[in-house]
């Protein structure tokens, strides 16, 4: 047995220091999604080692001189040579992403957190329900569903955005819609007369989606209020609360369950989440900041 009672702390401090060390990545590609949202492809700067992650996990992205922010991974987990992140410019660090150019370097720590329960989706119907930028953390789950389409029964993607101009991954959604074995529905809160698609909130789409409540998993990500109403609609349709998964994009700092910044009741969102089943977070979803 170790005689030094501080040894465990010393080891965990070293492990923590390691976990806090970012890897350097180059910006390989940058594209505009909407007026305030950008998507970046990042390639490792120092090694040719790939980057493995599970759908729903996030990285801490570090902009030198500005700071670090948690951002979900939005690319395909089966393409390990490139990391894809979609960032909405909302404040002091994320605004800095606007100035990044091809070839610039950023720091990446991760991947962190518990992702979407893809295994649990096997053999059943899957509902992917996204609001606004909530589509970013769900996109890796969708790639997984497409790559392994024969593992699932009906797959529906329901997406709500503020207006047609706020739809992210526009061209890709058009391609998804052309797939015959996937149901894709998009709605916007308001539109001008050039838009011929659905207008209205997302809950009616959820109310009429086709699924077998006894054998369905729902993956939901969007603003807290949206997730709350979507979960309530799904429960009214007979889906059990523990088959509804939501992603809580809570403010966080260390990302390794150390600082407590993202603690919500018993859960550290960075480690236990961000993806958690609705029965575990029902009360938390009522809290304003989520």
């Amino acid at each position: 047995m170790d005689a030094n009672p501080n040894a465990a702390t010393a080891v965990s401090s070293a492990a923590m220091a390691d976990a806090m060390l970012p890897r350097r990545f180059h910006v390989a590609r940058k594209r505009n999604e909407t007026a305030d949202t950008l998507t970046f492809d990042l390639a490792p700067a120092d090694t040719s080692d790939g980057f493995s992650f599970a759908p729903g996990q996030f990285n801490m992205l570090y902009l030198f001189g500005l700071g670090e922010v948690p951002i979900s991974i939005s690319g395909d987990a089966e393409q390990t040579d490139r990391l894809v992140h979609t960032v909405r410019l909302v404040g002091s660090v994320t605004d800095g992403f606007a100035d990044l150019k091809r070839g610039d370097t950023i720091g990446v720590r991760g991947p962190y957190g518990a992702g979407w329960p893809m295994d649990e989706c096997n053999g059943g119907d899957v509902l992917v329900i996204a609001g606004g930028l909530g589509l970013a953390p769900l996109r890796p789950a969708m790639y997984h569903l497409f790559n392994h389409r024969d593992h699932y029964r009906r797959v529906s993607i329901l997406y709500g955005a503020r207006s047609p101009a706020d739809i992210v991954y526009h061209d890709e959604i058009q391609r998804w819609r052309q797939q015959l074995d996937i149901n894709v529905e998009v709605t916007v809160d308001h539109a001008d007369l050039r838009w011929h698609g659905n207008v209205g909130v997302i809950t009616p789409l959820v109310a009429k989606a086709e699924f077998d409540p006894a054998n369905t998993t729902a993956l939901v990500c969007g603003p807290g209020i949206m997730m709350r109403f979507v979960a309530a609609t799904l429960e009214r349709r007979g889906l059990a609360s523990d088959r509804i998964y939501v992603s809580l994009e809570r403010n966080m700092r260390c990302a390794i369950a150390h600082c407590g910044h993202c603690q919500l009741g018993p859960h550290f969102v960075c480690k236990d989440g961000p993806v958690l089943s609705h029965d575990r977070v029902r009360d938390i979803l009522q809290i304003a900041q989520v």
């Binding site: 955005a161 809160d189 009616p204």
Partner: peptide, 15 residues
């Protein structure tokens, strides 16, 4: 209920 959610502009908020 739908009008309330639209009024809240939930996707437009900086979050």
């Amino acid at each position: 209920q739908a009008a309330r959610l639209q009024l809240l502009d939930i996707y437009g908020r900086k979050s």
